[in-house]
Design a protein around this nucleic acid. Structure first.
Lengths: 385, 385
DNA sequence: CTAACTTCCTTTGATTTCGAAGTCAAACGG
DNA sequence: CCGTTTGACTTCGAAATCAAAGGAAGTTAG
């Protein structure tokens, strides 16, 4: 696992925030700094109000450590995970742990200004409602269901976000919230969340998000791989199928056109079964509705086929399947079966295939972690006074 | 572009070796160290015999810089790129530039002990023949046509290297040569070579090696991505074809079974055209032999199909096509066409698709660079006396 | 209970690294 | 020519960091 710089005060804060270190001694061991230097820095961090001492911890055979934790006053991040029709909002502490959660109904299609303004206002009132008025906000993180250019913080040619193309989301949010903003694709946030929360020891991870669409985030060497902003796209690979379906991208027979939640809903609709949200598909499968089970199994085979090649190529330590459809046991086991059958033994001999462990908050956790990773600047600034 | 640590004496040596810095001032700028610290370190490196001063460079408006370069005595690496039937041998300086080149006929199928012993002996005599007896050897690098486990330095279930499975190649070479050994897959070495030699400014690269087999090396964030040792495999993706061909891996219709140099040779053999080496296929295409052109075009389409999905997923800055078959213009243009037609615009808008620029020595260059990246230990050791 | 050991943290002087000012050697411009 | 400017090093005191020793506060074993 790798973050920003491995020294500096922000590194100590990260170690404490992520729960890796609880005492000066642990900080010294993990940071590589001399114990004396750690003591000095911790002193500064306590004076600056970022750390707090909290009694003594358990002895490990010698003197008991003086436990360190983040001060409440250290700050919080505002985080929103935007879907097509609603947003999950959260105030998280610097460790990424949710202090408050809320949902907001909002149609992303009304355009960026209106949506983002409403989201920011709701985030602020959420913080106030939970008595966090006195906790400084250190950053805002927004997850979006479309490709984000990491260089500019803009959404680039999204398929389901009319009016958002090339809109300067990052600048808009940073201006309106008055703090640094992080804009990221939702599948990428989910990947970071799963990695940090559930698989911190693994360096290479693929996280597939199966919901209305099909997304994928990739962790390489402990860090999110963005490429030029489009990395992780698996939904527009061409697959082989009997009936040809045209995809919104203009090509025929993309994976997304056959195996996404939206595609499944459409297929079931043709059988007279109306589905509004992907979660309902899970219910149908659980209830043993044959058309649903069959459709999901077909989708699983198609997804598994595509993932086979990617697993061979990327050779990850784990493949995590998340998103609302991942709760359909049938879907996951079909995918798992295809991969184990068809991948090279070398690629699967140590491969974990698991469902999401961070659950529905994975995106929020991920945003918190990324914001913490980028906290060097304001931490240094606070200490410099 | 990222290497090992960014400070320390080895970092300065790397900057000079790679030609990024030629003076103390440049070293200070690029390393982030204070000019005074750089001067001190350079002094030590000169005393240790690793650096040499070489007159003054061109002025950039003020005092002329004192040019630094690697001392001849600083050392050299021995490098071998092993193919199925012959090996390319080279002595390279610390910058990775070949000081001497040679070829050795050797059948890799006779087993690891015999092959490696012969290779090491030939490397030593190559160095002696070029008057490098007094230059210390700092490491040996070996490229192999099979998957290498980065943790153990062993070859893992190679398809065309009988007797090599689980043989401790790295330990054997290190013991017999008496210096640290680097063992790596040949496509991976090629990727590093292309990256450092031709595309140092790009961070994400796919390098496809088309020869007798199909290999691929991946550079992520400036560093070689190994995964668990099998990363970069693209040859056993299932493709769709009319006639079914079984692959050595046990599955039907792998890319390699249809589009590799070996597969092309077999297909041409069925038409009564005997081919021994992949390069001969290039000649046939250049000569306009219709069966060859047609076969190569089909192979290009298959390879392009597979790469499409990977380019969408990985979203690289450039896709480099190397290996002996890459000299067939038809093959490359077919691949390029398929990718530009079928990939997402987002993935191709800034994508370079190019043929190898480092040419046939790419593997050797790559090995040199990787060995330099791992030179921290011995450099520190020399300075510590 | 006491003595020995462990672990955590602080103290202390030595070392490294930095940063700002100073020196050097060239190009530039009257 | 001779000052001025620019960039490349050097010098030197200040600051950061370290490593080693010491003190603090426990556990463990007889």
């Amino acid at each position: 696992m790798r973050t920003s710089r491995d020294d500096g005060p922000a590194a100590l804060l990260r170690l404490v925030a992520t729960g890796q270190a609880e005492s000066r001694a642990e900080l010294a061991r993990l940071s590589g700094l001399a114990p004396s230097s750690v003591s000095l820095r911790v002193e500064q961090l306590i004076e600056a109000g970022l750390f707090a001492e909290e009694g003594a911890g358990a002895s490990r055979g010698g003197r008991r450590p003086r436990r360190l934790r983040l001060a409440r006053q250290a700050g919080a991040f505002l985080v929103a995970d935007l879907g097509a029709h609603h947003a999950r909002l959260s105030v998280v502490d610097l460790a990424g742990a949710p202090l408050a959660l809320d949902e907001l109904a909002c149609d992303i299609a009304v355009g960026p200004e209106e949506t983002l303004t409403a989201v920011i206002a709701s985030l602020r009132s959420l913080a106030h409602a939970h008595g966090l008025r006195d906790v400084p906000v250190r950053g805002v993180g927004i997850g979006l269901p479309g490709p984000v250019d990491p260089a500019t913080g803009q959404v680039v040619s999204p398929s389901r976000m009319p009016g958002w193309n090339d809109f300067p989301v990052r600048d808009f949010v940073a201006d309106h919230a008055g703090v640094p903003a992080l804009i990221e694709n939702d599948a990428n946030l989910m990947a970071v969340g799963e990695h940090r929360h559930s698989w911190p020891a693994l360096d290479n991870l693929m996280v597939v998000k199966l919901g209305r669409g099909i997304g994928c985030g990739v962790i390489v060497d402990g860090r999110l791989h963005r490429g030029r902003g489009a990395a992780g796209d698996i939904s527009h690979v061409r697959i082989l199928s009997e009936a040809t379906v045209d995809c919104s991208c203009g090509h025929p027979d993309c994976l997304e056109a056959h195996a996404s939640g939206a595609a499944l809903a459409a297929a079931l609709g043709a059988h007279g079964i109306e589905v509004e949200r992907p979660a309902q598909i899970v219910d149908l499968v659980t209830d043993g509705v044959p058309q649903a089970t069959s459709a999901v199994r077909t989708a699983g085979r198609l997804i598994g086929d595509v993932l086979t090649g990617l697993v061979n190529f990327f050779n990850p330590d784990a493949l995590v399947i998340g998103g609302s459809l991942s709760e359909a046991e049938t879907l996951v086991s079909t995918i798992r079966g295809v991969i184990y059958e068809r991948c090279l033994p070398l690629a699967t001999r140590n491969l974990e295939i698991a469902t999401s462990r961070a659950g529905r908050d994975a995106c929020i956790l991920g945003a918190g972690h990324l914001l913490l990773d980028r906290s060097d600047a304001w931490i240094d600034h606070i200490l410099d006074r």
